[in-house]
Simulated assay, not measured.
Amino acid sequence: MTIESLPIFTRPARQRWESIPTDIRQRLLSNVWCGCCSHETTITDFSGTIRNGNLLLVGKCAQCHGDVARVVEGT
């Protein structure tokens, strides 16, 4: 049995993330491009920050455990 760690977010990133509806959050996490696998994957072990007004999620590919990122554009 593995225990997943809770994501680490900066305060502004957490506020932005929590403003996104739960079903949309799940779709964002499961629709990340992995350059190593060359296909869509799920991001795991991710953290969140705000960069240039956008929410940046950085983590690992669920399949190969390579580095992946997801940008959620600001409004």
Rank of each mutant, 00 (worst) to 15 (best):
T75L: 12
N31K: 07
C37P: 01
P7T: 07
G35P: 00
T10Q: 03
S19M: 01
A13F: 05
A69C: 09
H65A: 10
M1N: 10
E40W: 12
H39I: 04
G66H: 03
S19T: 05
F9W: 05
C61D: 08
T75A: 12
W33Y: 11
L57K: 08
S47T: 14
I20M: 06
E40G: 09
I3M: 09
H65Y: 03
A69K: 15
S38A: 12
N52G: 11
E73Q: 08
C36T: 11
G53W: 09
D23Y: 06
C34T: 01
S47F: 00
T22K: 13
L56I: 11
V72S: 07
G66M: 01
V68G: 02
R11T: 12
E4K: 14
T10K: 05
S38K: 12
R16M: 11
C64S: 04
N54V: 01
I3W: 02
L57S: 06
T22C: 05
E40P: 00
C37D: 08
M1C: 12
L29V: 07
V72I: 15
S5W: 05
L56H: 13
T22W: 06
E40F: 08
L29N: 08
N54K: 05
V68L: 07
A13I: 07
F46M: 04
S47K: 08
N52D: 15
Q26N: 13
K60A: 13
N54L: 03
A13N: 08
C61H: 06
F46N: 04
D45F: 02
C64E: 00
L55D: 09
G59Y: 05
L55R: 13
D23L: 09
Q63H: 10
V68H: 00
Q15H: 06
S47P: 01
R27T: 10
C64I: 02
R70M: 12
L28W: 10
S30G: 15
D45Y: 02
W17F: 08
E4H: 10
Q26W: 12
G35V: 03
D23K: 11
G74T: 10
S47A: 06
T44E: 14
T10H: 02
D67L: 12
V32A: 00
Q15I: 12
P21G: 07
E4S: 14
I50Y: 06
D23W: 02
G48H: 02
W33M: 13
I43C: 00
E18C: 04
Q63S: 09
R70D: 05
H39G: 09
S30K: 15
T49C: 09
D45G: 14
Q63W: 06
L57G: 08
T22D: 10
E73W: 08
G66I: 00
T44M: 11
